[in-house]
Design a binder for these strands. Structure first.
Length: 594
RNA sequence: CGGGGCGUAGCGCAGCCCGGUCAGCGCGCCUGCCUUGGGCGCAGGAGGCCGGCGGUUCAAAUCCGCCCGCCCCGACCA
């Protein structure tokens, strides 16, 4: 096949060699949607013959999918090379000890595939490659003179997801472009991070995606700053909080402004216990005491590193566990059980509060700051306290612990209301800092001879998610509508009746002419009725179709059809290459970022 | 890991409740004829140890038990 004629670096970024006759190319389309598929990208990739499932969250990529994967990867390679990144290829099979030295052997928990070799040594399948790249850096990078470095690879990752779902959107084996930057100081990291930010914008723009860049929570990666690249989609599992002013953040990280609340003077100096039999939820207490939920304190007990913590929120707010995790500096926490709550506070959930609590940490959301005369549980079943004032009757550590709600005020422009939508994460960039270089002892000497840990960044793109999100964004009732840059073929040549000599000759001539000019062409030589061929071409999403029919052919013309616009235009045979070049060029997504 | 659902031909499904001419339908596939501008028509045909194991029974796709797999919701998720 033509692909063999090119080394991978000589693939033009929008073209893959190898052109095919449909009757011989493996495109197992399905007339009906397989029952297991729910989201559009999954349904269409199955129906259009791109993928087949092997097991839960494990898919085989058929030739069409592989061609689109290579197209996406070619765009990625070009843009990574543009920022000076160097391509590696690292093992997927790792010795456990590397992960033990970074501490993530435990942190990754059951999400990591683990196995033993014949000698009984712990091994695992890589979920990501901070440890491995850092190990190389550790052995080889000694001097600031060698920095900065940006290293990357496009390689498969393994994660034993608790719940694989939605076709290629959440899987257990997938392809990731991961890169890592190595700098001598924070300013260098800022530059490497910014390069990646720009490169990612260019990659996703060239892939034709509509995306947003949001502030993100860095999670178990550690590190100080992080952005996610998100595609708005109902198939997504993340929530993005955004504002018309440009503010956008992951739900885990998002903040908002609240309308001020004026509290009445408390009746007395001390909180007053009131009998609230059977009133446990905020709503029940609210109704019983005729007090708005905003006047109540919601008290939650968590066990963080096995120690109980009391968390206070405004009655109508919800806990944001990502923010809690950042504040307490551990991801090892969980809600306390009923027994643990009773032991810690002497009452059951529904009657909990901070007043008089001394033996445990009290964390309070800043929405409660400067409030007074509030209602909270009394730590005595069926009793609440009225008139509690933070800072007076209890002394919490203040922080941001709440989930924002739609319609609250944007923290950036301070004027508009926030929107919340579902989104797919297609890329994520992190400033790691020295977390891995310290634990794995990757140090360099500075200009003035000091030994410092390398300052690192880590950057990922889910390649399959580029394809899946493109399909989520661009499809219709008939099938996929690929951006030209990702389509497995640019053009399908469809003679209405391939058995007729004049149509066959015209088709083969066009096929040869376009292929020779570097265009990816599929020739539909099947002995099928035209309707079948049109339906299949629409389904697999080829951006342009050249239809060869008897009437126009008599005038030495063929028809150029655009999958996206569904417009048809007659084109003279002798001008077809030129016209196809034009329409491909016109519809090829361009990077807006410089 | 909790809750729910499903496993019968390549795909989509019926049959199961009420055991016994139930191995069935549509699409796809093969052969022939026909047809060729949006999944055409006619005729013939191939294909399934009914997810697995065990039990009940004269008899099990059907009832019971265990296991496995897959999907959905939740938990979880760099």
């Amino acid at each position: 096949m033509g692909l063999l004629r090119f080394s991978c670096y000589s693939i033009r970024f929008y073209r893959i060699g190898g052109n095919m006759y449909w009757s011989q190319f493996f495109i197992p389309t399905l007339r009906e949607t397989p029952a297991d598929a729910e989201v559009p990208s999954h349904q269409l990739m199955l129906r259009a013959g791109y993928i087949r499932q092997l097991a839960a969250g494990i898919y085989s990529y058929l030739p069409l999918a592989q061609r689109s994967m290579l197209k996406a990867q070619a765009v990625i390679r070009e843009e990574m090379e543009r920022i000076g990144a160097q391509e590696f290829y690292l093992p997927a099979l790792h010795p456990g000890e590397v992960w033990m030295s970074s501490g993530r052997w435990e942190v990754m928990g059951p999400n990591m595939f683990r196995l033993k070799d014949r000698a009984g040594r712990d091994m695992c399948l890589g979920m990501t490659h901070e440890e491995i790249f850092t190990t190389i850096a550790c052995g080889e990078l000694r001097s600031y003179r060698q920095l900065p470095q940006i290293w990357y690879q496009i390689q498969c990752k393994f994660r034993d997801e608790p719940r694989p779902k939605s076709g290629l959107l959440r899987v257990r084996q997938f392809t990731m472009k991961d890169s890592y930057s190595f700098d001598v100081d924070a300013a260098g990291l800022d530059r490497s991070y910014d390069k990646h930010y720009q490169a990612y914008c260019r990659i996703f723009e060239r892939c034709g995606l509509r995306y947003a860049v949001v502030e993100a929570h860095s999670g178990s990666m550690g590190g100080s700053q992080s952005h996610e690249f998100m595609v708005r989609s109902d198939a997504g599992e993340d929530l993005v909080v955004s504002c018309g002013c440009g503010y956008a953040a992951n739900m885990e990280r998002a903040q908002s402004l609240l309308d001020p609340i004026e509290d009445a003077e408390p009746q007395g100096a001390e909180p007053e216990p009131v009998h609230t039999p059977g009133q446990k939820t905020i709503a029940e207490v609210s109704a019983f005491l005729q007090a708005d939920p905003t006047r109540q304190i919601k008290s939650l007990v968590y066990l963080a590193d096995s120690k109980p913590v009391l968390i206070l929120l405004r009655g109508d707010h919800s806990l944001n566990e990502a923010k809690l995790s950042s504040h307490i500096g551990t991801s090892v926490f969980r809600p306390a059980t009923a027994e643990e709550i009773l032991e810690a506070l002497g009452a059951d959930a529904g009657s909990l509060g901070p007043v008089g609590v001394s033996r445990m940490t009290i964390l309070a959301d800043q929405a409660l700051r400067d409030r007074r005369n509030l209602i909270c549980g009394a730590n005595r079943n069926d009793y609440h306290l009225v008139g509690a004032t933070p800072g007076v009757h209890f002394q919490p550590q203040w922080g941001d612990f709440r989930l924002v709600n739609e319609g609250e005020t944007c923290p950036a422009c301070r004027r508009e209301k926030l929107q919340i939508y579902k989104a797919l994460e297609i890329g994520h960039i992190f400033k790691l800092g020295t977390k891995y270089s310290e634990s794995l002892r990757a140090h360099v000497l500075t200009h003035d001879g000091r030994e410092v840990p390398i300052v690192m960044g880590s950057y990922g793109i889910g390649v399959e998610r580029i394809l899946a999100s493109a399909i989520e964004l661009f499809h219709d009732a008939d099938g996929i509508v690929w951006p030209v840059s990702l389509a497995p073929f640019h053009v399908v040549v469809t003679p209405v009746n391939f058995a007729l000599e004049d149509q066959r000759q015209a088709a083969e001539n066009i096929y040869r002419e376009l292929s020779g000019a570097g265009i990816d062409v599929l020739l539909d030589d099947r002995n099928e009725r035209p309707g079948v061929k049109f339906k299949d071409a629409d389904l697999i999403g080829v951006p342009f179709r050249i239809t060869i029919g008897p009437k126009l052919l008599k005038e030495n013309k063929v028809e150029l059809y655009s999958r996206a616009t569904r417009k048809m235009e007659p084109v003279p045979l002798e001008g077809i290459l030129q016209r196809v070049r034009e329409v491909i060029a016109e519809s090829m997504p361009q990077a807006r970022h410089s």
